[in-house]
Simulated assay, not measured.
Amino acid sequence: MLRPGEDLLHVEDRLWLLTAPTGQGIYDFAFDRFFACRHPYQLPESLEVIARAGAWNDYAERYRELEGQGVRLVHSPEQHLLATELPHWYPRLTDLTPRSVWFDERPDAETVERQLGWPVFMKGERQTSRHKKSLSIIEGPEQFRQAMEVYAKDPILHWQRVVCRELRPLRRVEEGAPDRIPSSFEFRTFWWRGELVGWGPYWWQGSPYTMTEAEQREALGLGREVARRLAVPFLVVDLAQEVSGRWIVIECNDGQESGYAGVSPFALWRNILEMERARAVPRSY
């Protein structure tokens, strides 16, 4: 049932997790150092688990494998796609995020120019390639053609559909390295069953930045609306502020696969556990 390196944990007798180390500090978290964790010898006949084992390229297959053993991942394959891939979540959020188009085959420059004009922000349907500016912020047709040559060979991008987005003027935090997307006033938010359980700066390694109370109300209100519209159990929403002050959705992700960025993992899981305890308490009438 479990693949090499994977482990099943029952955390605080409230939450089942399927974990595996990835070697990425932004993602891994030692649950048993901060919470009471058990490794039961005998499992219930069926249980729902959150996976924190990195990104699976075969999520639907893994879901079916585990389901056959009575272990049900918190997201069905359909929910996973809705949370993760822009062509699935974008139609529900068109008024909250930059205009976007995507292509089953790598497009030519003329097609992109006709649909969006220049410049554009380009990415795979799930992610960029290590935030490289030269592969993301495309100023014109010649740069686009060069980027497409790299996309065909890039280990992160070659298997993803190409997404082109309207390039919006975002509030800058810092420029960063020469070939890295400039850091914007962007925040990662985690939502568990529609409720906020953690937020923090997306560009957590650079110059520190945070939101005022008024900005929190507006940005997190937008995140809550996204969580309502997508209605999946464990959602990540990345939000950024334009220079005009308007907040927009940058992207969505499955919380099972997402790195913490500037979010405290301890606080995040403590909040989820508290919600699960509250759900388990019988109501008196």
Rank of each mutant, 00 (worst) to 15 (best):
L230F: 10
G176S: 05
A36R: 13
C164W: 00
P91E: 14
G117C: 07
L135S: 03
Q143R: 10
Q241N: 06
C37D: 08
V263A: 02
W56D: 15
Y260I: 00
V263R: 11
L15N: 08
S207D: 08
R38E: 06
P208E: 09
L135Q: 03
H88I: 01
C252E: 09
S184K: 05
L15D: 02
R217M: 03
L116M: 14
R224M: 14
R33M: 06
G68N: 02
L18N: 08
W247M: 05
R14P: 00
E213H: 08
E125T: 07
T128Q: 10
W56T: 02
L196H: 11
V232H: 13
L235S: 11
A278V: 06
L167G: 04
M275D: 15
A51S: 07
C252D: 03
L2C: 15
P233Q: 03
W89I: 01
F144A: 08
A177T: 10
R38V: 11
L196I: 11
E110K: 13
S258D: 03
I50H: 01
E218L: 04
W247S: 02
R171C: 06
A278R: 08
L167Q: 12
S134W: 15
M148D: 01
K123H: 05
R283S: 12
L73T: 02
G124I: 00
W118K: 04
G206M: 12
R62L: 05
P265S: 06
L93S: 08
S46I: 11
I26Y: 14
R72L: 12
F234S: 04
R193W: 07
D95F: 10
S264G: 15
F187A: 01
C164D: 09
L43F: 11
L157C: 02
S183H: 10
D108C: 04
R193H: 07
E218N: 02
P282Y: 04
P233M: 06
H131R: 09
H158F: 07
V74Y: 08
G194P: 07
F234M: 14
Q127F: 08
E48W: 05
H39N: 15
L96Y: 04
Q143C: 03
P44A: 13
F187Q: 03
